[in-house]
């Protein structure tokens, strides 16, 4: 039987809130984004294709998506540890550390970019150590990865914290009483329980990294084919008044990001459905 579109509920305001949601999303997201597509459509298919498959642009896709993915993965691992420590243990200065997690949110991205560049450049505090080990951080793809990791950390930590707080230690005790070792408890009980939150945090960090501009342009050095990120190419096209070219690249970014986020969400929905027993 088909369910009616409008379901009666004791909680009022379904019509009003749905209407508002659609209106608000249209105003803020859909209309500006459709303008993007409309502008791109002015340039025609063949010129669109030549712009978005230009080797320099393709190299920038690889760097942007690759470094964002690497950053998000690193954040998923270390953000997990940070979140776990902050929720499960108490130690002096915990509140301070907790507040510090938000700094990458709060700092203007240009400031973090300059700070990172100073520290990781050849004669910076960290950079000189890496240099003696033969690793160049600033002005290389590695530097881009560092910047994108830096700005993504709060997303993973902040989404995991409530999930870890919700995870009753009883589950671990139950697993331990059934004879599971520490590693088994983590892999079979804790990790699957936190996977939905971890995926959300990962997706947010990844999405944020894809769009990041300010903190990267300083540390990357912006060398064509090597350390140029896609948002930078869009900006430079805009500076040359090539609006259609800029929106063309933007459309590719948008579609690719949306597809990836949708895929991550799909995995997450499946997992949550299983837990909630509607699968």
């Amino acid at each position: 039987m088909r369910q009616p579109f409008k379901q009666h509920s004791v909680i009022p305001g379904f019509g009003v809130t749905l209407g508002f949601t659609v209106f608000y999303l249209s105003l803020l997201v859909l209309i500006p984004l459709s303008a993007l597509f409309l502008k791109t459509a002015t340039m025609g298919w063949s010129s669109f294709w030549s712009v978005v498959t230009d080797p320099r642009v393709v190299a920038s896709y690889k760097l942007t998506f690759g470094a964002s993915l690497a950053g998000a993965l690193i954040n998923a691992v270390f953000g997990f540890i940070v979140a776990w420590t902050l929720v499960r243990y108490s130690f002096p200065g915990k509140r301070l550390v907790d507040a510090m997690v938000d700094l990458p949110f709060a700092l203007p991205t240009a400031v973090s970019g300059i700070a990172l560049t100073t520290i990781y450049s050849r004669n910076g505090w960290v950079g000189c150590w890496l240099e003696s080990a033969g690793i160049h951080a600033a002005f290389t793809p590695l530097g881009v990865g560092i910047a994108l990791t830096f700005i993504g950390l709060p997303f993973v930590v902040r989404t995991l914290q409530p999930a870890i707080a919700d995870l009753d230690p009883e589950y671990e005790e139950a697993a331990a009483s059934l004879g599971a070792g520490r590693v088994q408890v983590f892999l079979k009980v804790i990790f699957p329980g936190l996977l939905p939150a971890l995926l959300t945090g990962f997706a947010l960090a990844f999405a944020r990294a894809l769009g990041e501009y300010g903190s990267v342009v300083f540390i990357s050095g912006n060398m064509p084919m090597r350390t140029e990120i896609t948002p930078l190419l869009i900006i430079s096209k805009l500076e040359q008044y090539d609006y259609a070219g800029a929106t063309a690249i933007a459309v590719v970014m948008l579609v690719a990001s949306f597809a990836i986020l949708l895929a991550i969400n799909a995995i997450q929905w499946r997992h949550v459905r299983r837990i909630n027993g509607r699968g």
């Binding site: 009753d168 005790e173 996977l195």
Partner: peptide, 13 residues
């Protein structure tokens, strides 16, 4: 020991 918890602590996933 077999331990049965008050709120069951069944693994949800």
């Amino acid at each position: 020991v077999g331990f049965v918890f008050q709120h069951y602590a069944l693994f949800r996933h």
